[in-house]
């Protein structure tokens, strides 16, 4: 892409030199804004995270990595890590499985395809808060017969009493119930990604495989699925970073209770309720690092391969 300018004729190039930086000035406001609001603020947060600020008065006294070290012996933060891992696994695997299945089904050109596609995607347009408020009532964890409601009541009415459970109040695994709501919201999106990928597979390839006598199942397994790896990668990155940041959904479904704690909620509570600013900033920075580990290689890969094409 860089070579674009070089390909111009020398005369044209000379004229261009005048306004060589004109474009720069046009994007400068955005560069400055992102510079302050993203990079500047990250640096500022790092500074807070290395300070002993606790209480209502900013105190930037340097304490080194103390806040970070304390977090790793903090049982609450361990709960957060466990919950994040469970949530991420359930949410990402669930969304990928459902998304891919739906995409393959829709790829068969069945009647009503457009309807299904819109239907599966619509939760994406809704806020996590709205989703949370509705799911809060569907995941009602009461299990005594006279107080059943939500899914538990539905199971009872369908004679599926063995399915009745405490949802998000289930010890240790409760967070997986909240991940269900997230899957509901994001699996349609995953389907859309996969469908885009499936439709990009050239028909000739499928035809050729069929001519060679491959069954429809084999066509998918041997030819199509391997071609969907880049889509899967994109989806994992996007779903993964959503799940690392999850905050409003959990608040809306379950309120702030420790068994369902995640780093984003701990950050909020310890900073604004407990006034441990230094600790709060450290949690924020650790979240950032975990996201960056996912994102930076991905950005590097995407932009590089995008540039070559």
């Amino acid at each position: 892409m860089i070579t674009e300018n070089a390909s111009l004729k020398p005369a044209a190039r000379r004229r261009l030199n005048l306004g060589k930086y004109a474009g720069f000035f046009l994007v400068l406001p955005s560069i400055i804004a992102v510079g302050i609001f993203v990079y500047g603020f990250i640096a500022w947060s790092v500074r807070v995270s290395l300070s002993q600020w606790k209480g209502l008065t900013p105190d930037y006294t340097f304490v080194g990595l103390k806040n970070y070290i304390n977090l790793f012996s903090d049982p609450r933060f361990m709960v957060d890590i466990r919950n994040t891992v469970i949530f991420t696994l359930v949410f990402v695997l669930g969304s990928l499985t459902i998304g891919l299945t739906l995409a393959i089904l829709l790829d068969q050109h069945l009647p009503g395809e457009a309807f299904f596609r819109s239907l599966f995607l619509f939760p994406m347009a809704i806020s996590f808060i709205v989703t949370g408020v509705v799911w809060r009532w569907m995941l009602n964890p009461a299990i005594t017969a006279d107080r059943l409601s939500g899914f538990n009541l539905l199971f009872h009415n369908l004679g599926l009493d063995f399915l009745i459970n405490q949802w998000h109040l289930t010890p240790t695994w409760g967070i997986a119930a909240v991940a269900l709501a997230a899957i509901w919201q994001m699996s349609g999106y995953t389907m859309a990604l996969y469908l885009g990928g499936l439709r990009a597979v050239p028909d000739e390839l499928r035809e050729a495989a069929r001519v060679d006598g491959a069954s429809e199942l084999q066509v998918y397994r041997r030819i199509i699925l391997p071609m969907l790896w880049p889509v899967t990668l994109s989806a994992v990155i996007i779903l993964g970073h959503i799940s690392l940041k999850v905050f409003d959904l959990i608040i809306a479904v379950a309120g702030k209770q420790l068994p369902l704690d995640v780093p984003a909620i701990y950050m909020w509570q310890t900073t604004f309720d407990g006034l441990f600013y230094g600790r709060g900033a450290s949690i924020g920075i650790l979240l950032l690092i975990s996201v960056a580990v996912l994102i930076i290689p991905y950005l590097y890969y995407s932009l590089r391969s995008g540039g070559e094409s």
Binding site: N140, P141, A142, I143, L169, Q257
Partner: peptide, 11 residues
């Protein structure tokens, strides 16, 4: 005392 409480307290 917690042993006497309802199971769905958290919600």
């Amino acid at each position: 005392a917690l042993g006497y409480t309802n199971t769905d307290a958290g919600s």
